[in-house]
Structures are given as structure tokens and as C-alpha cells.
């Protein structure tokens, strides 16, 4: 299960790098069509891998971490951070899946379409970073749960 999580993190990191690279390529005076399309395809595949790997880990292994988080002092790491992460990641996927379609448009080098394509790369970056920060908070929530047990419910001093 650890390897699933590592692969999820790595594919997420690579997808952010691919989005950043594509954003830079699209800003060139004469963007290279082949490279932009290959990058968009790579990004779409990486985003798919991020969801499949992270989803498999979430469905198969996250239950144990959730139990640790919920009995620790940071229950919001699940109730807020993980809940946001697991749902905004679909926005990340949608923006990544749309880019290869957009860059197949015969008029894709038109400034208005390139602006739309660059906006999609920014959306991938934005939702990707948001999901990554969510993952960080979840990791910290687990750590807090393991090292600092929550005080007994209703137990005043």
C-alpha cells in the first residue's frame, strides 16, 4: 500500500511539472505544436494515474489512517482537508483531460484559444496544489493522531 501512495505522489508531482512546462510552451511566440500536444497527452495520462493510484489507496487503505486522525487532536484533517481533496481532484482531472482536446483544434494557435489552454494549465496547477496541500494536512493529521492522543470527550479538568 505504501508503494501506491508513493506512486500517487510521484505522478502528482510529475503532472504539476508537465502542466507548468505546457503553460510555458503555450506562452512562446511560436509554440511547437507537436511538443504541446504530446505534453497535453502526457498530462492527461498522468492526471488519470494520479486519480487511479490515489483512489485505490483511498478506497483500500485510508480507513486505518482515518481512524487515527479522528481519534487525534486534528479531526479536521479528515473532515475538511481530505473531503476537499477527494472532490476537487475531479476538477484537476477535468482540466487535464480537456487540454488534449483543445490542442487538437485546428485554430489552437489563435491567441484566444491559447489563453483558454493556458487557463486550463493554471487550473491543473491550482487544483493540483490544493490537493497536494490537502494531502499534507492529512499526513500531519495522522502524525498528530499517533503522537498526541486526543483528551477524553467531555472530560474537563
Amino acid at each position: 500500500m505504501t508503494s501506491l501512495l508513493v506512486a500517487h505522489h510521484l505522478s502528482g508531482l510529475l503532472s504539476l511539472l508537465a502542466a507548468l512546462w505546457l503553460w510555458a510552451e503555450l506562452g512562446a511566440a511560436q509554440p511547437a505544436a507537436g511538443r504541446c500536444r504530446r505534453l497535453a497527452l502526457l498530462l492527461a495520462h498522468l492526471a488519470g494515474a494520479v486519480l487511479l493510484l490515489g483512489g485505490a489507496w483511498y478506497v483500500l487503505a485510508y480507513g486505518a489512517d482515518r481512524a487515527v486522525i479522528l481519534r487525534g487532536p486534528w479531526p479536521q484533517a479528515h473532515g475538511v482537508a481530505m473531503e476537499i481533496k477527494e472532490h476537487v481532484v475531479f476538477l484537476f482531472l477535468l482540466a487535464a483531460l480537456y487540454l488534449p482536446v483543445l490542442l487538437r483544434d485546428p485554430a489552437w494557435t489563435d491567441p484566444s484559444l491559447r489563453r483558454l489552454a493556458r487557463a486550463c494549465t493554471v487550473l491543473v496547477l491550482l487544483w493540483g496544489v490544493a490537493a497536494d496541500v490537502g494531502g499534507l494536512v492529512v499526513d500531519l493529521g495522522v502524525r498528530q493522531g499517533l503522537t498526541r492522543p486526543a483528551p477524553p470527550a467531555g472530560g474537563g479538568s
Partner: peptide, 20 residues
């Protein structure tokens, strides 16, 4: 005005719809 291909418009609108 630049014309979009039907696929670009269709999947762009679908992405907006799926996001909502």
C-alpha cells in the same frame, strides 16, 4: 471571431457542466 471546432466547444462545455 475565431470559430471553435465542434469538439472543442462540446468538450469545453461538458467540462464546465461536469465541474458544476
Amino acid at each position: 471571431m475565431t470559430a471553435l471546432s465542434d469538439r472543442t466547444a462540446g468538450f469545453g462545455l461538458a467540462a464546465a457542466l461536469a465541474a458544476l
